[in-house]
C-alpha cells in the first residue's frame, strides 16, 4: 500500500499508538503500550530502559518480526522514503503484504541484532551473504556488488580482502558486528535499528564500534534507533533519548536534557544507579523494588510501587506523556504527575 505526498521535512517513521501484547499462559503480556513517536530524518534515537521494558519488542514490531504469539492490537506505522528529486513515498508498514514486507525489510529499514553470530548463515562466506541479500532484493550483482561491499566494509574499518572470503565463525565478535553493520547498509536503508549493538563486546571493541557508528552518521544519511540498557552508549551516540518503562515511553528529550535535567523519577533513578568512573561512591543509589509484572500491571502509574514520590493519585491515575515547557524551547515530554518537583526532591534527598 503506497501513497504519495509532497511534504518536505517529514519524519522517516511515525509510530502512532502502537500497542503490542504477547499471549502467555497466565494472560496477555502488555509489552508495548500505546507508544507514539516520530523518528526524524538523520537522527539517532536511543531507547533505554531495563530488560522487560519493551525496547526489543518495539524494535521488532517496526520491521514486523514479532514472534507468532505476539499481536499488534492497535496502532499505525508510517514509513516515509525520501529520494532526491522524487516525491515522498509513504508506506503503511502494518498493511504490507508478505512480499511487500520482504522488500521493506532491509531495503527501507534494517535491523541489526544483538547476537551477531546468529545473524549469519554459518555455511555461507561473507561474500555470498552479501550476494544473497543483494539478489533477494534485485540489487546489483558481481563486480558492482563487490565494489559497493568493499566500500562499506572499509567504512566500518575492516580490511575487505580479509573478511570477504571468510566465514562468520572465523571473525571475532567485533568484526562480525561490523560486517553486519556494513551488510545492513548495503541497500541504502533510511532507517537502521540496532539492538544492543555493543553488549557482550569488550571495552576496546565497543569503543571501535561506537566510533564506526559515529563515522557512518557523518558520511551517510540514515536514521538510527538503538536499543540499549547501557546509558553510556546513549550518552555517546544519541541525539534524543526515549526512556521506556513497563512498555511505555515515560520520558523523551534530547540527550543533554535526559542526562542533565531528567524529570521522570525513573530516568533520574536510572542515571543515579549507574556508577561512572568519576562518580563518588556515595552518589550512586539503586532503584528500590523490581520491574513490574507485565501481566498483572500495577494500577495508575506503572512506576508507583518503586517511586519515592508516589501518592494516592499516582496509584489511581496513569499519567500520559505530556509535553512540558522547557527553558530553551526544546522538546521534552514526560509521563509523571510530579514532574515539576521530582528532580528537586530526588536530588536533594541524596
Amino acid at each position: 500500500m503506497e501513497t504519495t505526498t509532497k511534504t518536505p521535512g517529514v519524519p522517516t517513521l511515525s509510530i502512532q499508538n502502537l500497542t503490542v501484547s504477547y499471549q502467555a499462559k497466565r494472560g496477555a503480556v502488555q509489552a508495548v503500550r500505546n507508544i507514539t513517536l516520530d523518528i526524524q530524518r538523520g537522527e539517532a534515537l536511543a531507547l533505554i530502559g531495563e530488560s522487560g521494558s519493551g525496547k526489543t519488542t518495539m524494535g521488532l514490531s517496526l520491521v514486523r518480526l514479532l514472534p507468532s504469539n505476539a499481536s499488534i492490537s492497535q496502532g499505525r506505522l508510517i514509513y516515509r522514503r525520501v529520494d532526491a528529486g522524487k516525491p515522498v513515498r509513504e508506506i503503511d508498514v502494518l498493511a504490507l503484504k508478505t512480499d511487500e514486507l520482504r522488500q521493506y525489510r532491509w531495503k527501507e529499514c534494517a535491523m541489526v541484532f544483538q547476537a551477531a553470530l546468529n545473524a549469519f548463515n554459518p555455511v555461507l562466506k561473507i561474500s555470498e551473504q552479501f550476494a544473497d541479500t543483494s539478489k533477494a532484493h534485485g540489487y546489483i550483482q558481481g563486480k558492482a556488488l563487490e565494489e559497493r561491499a568493499f566500500h562499506l566494509l572499509k567504512l566500518v574499518r575492516l580490511e575487505p580482502s580479509r573478511v570477504w572470503n571468510g566465514y562468520a565463525h572465523e571473525l571475532s565478535g567485533g568484526m562480525r558486528q561490523r560486517v553486519l553493520i556494513a551488510l545492513s547498509l548495503l541497500l541504502e536503508p533510511q532507517l537502521i535499528i540496532l539492538d544492543e549493538p555493543t553488549t557482550a563486546l569488550d571495552i576496546l571493541t565497543q569503543r571501535n564500534i561506537m566510533n564506526v557508528l559515529k563515522d557512518l552518521r557523518t558520511q551517510l544519511d540514515f536514521s538510527l534507533i538503538f536499543i540499549s540498557h547501557d546509558l553510556s552508549l546513549a550518552a555517546e551516540l544519541a541525539d534524543r533519548v526515549a526512556t521506556m518503562y513497563a512498555g511505555e515511553i515515560v520520558e523523551l528529550s534530547d540527550v543533554y536534557t535526559t542526562f542533565k535535567n531528567p524529570l521522570h523519577p525513573y530516568t533520574i533513578g536510572l542515571i543515579h544507579a549507574v556508577p561512572t568512573l568519576a562518580a563518588h561512591r556515595d552518589n550512586v543509589t539503586s532503584i528500590p523494588g523490581s520491574p513490574p509484572d507485565l501481566i498483572n500491571m500495577p494500577t495508575g502509574c506503572k512506576f508507583h510501587p518503586r517511586c519515592p514520590l508516589a501518592d494516592e493519585r499516582c496509584k489511581r491515575d496513569d499519567p500520559t506523556l505530556e509535553t512540558v515547557e522547557t527553558v530553551n524551547g526544546a522538546e521534552h515530554k514526560v509521563a509523571c504527575w510530579h514532574w515539576k518537583s521530582a528532580r528537586a526532591k530526588l536530588t536533594s534527598e541524596r
Partner: peptide, 28 residues
C-alpha cells in the same frame, strides 16, 4: 590508560569530550 580512555560515560558532555588514546593496532 587506554581502557579508561575508551570507556563511554553516562554523561554526554564528559563522554563526547573524552580524549581517547589510540592503540597502535586494533588486533588482539
Amino acid at each position: 590508560r587506554v581502557l579508561l580512555s575508551s570507556i563511554p560515560e553516562a554523561d554526554p558532555d564528559v563522554t563526547r569530550q573524552k580524549k581517547q588514546i589510540e592503540l597502535r593496532s586494533m588486533d588482539v
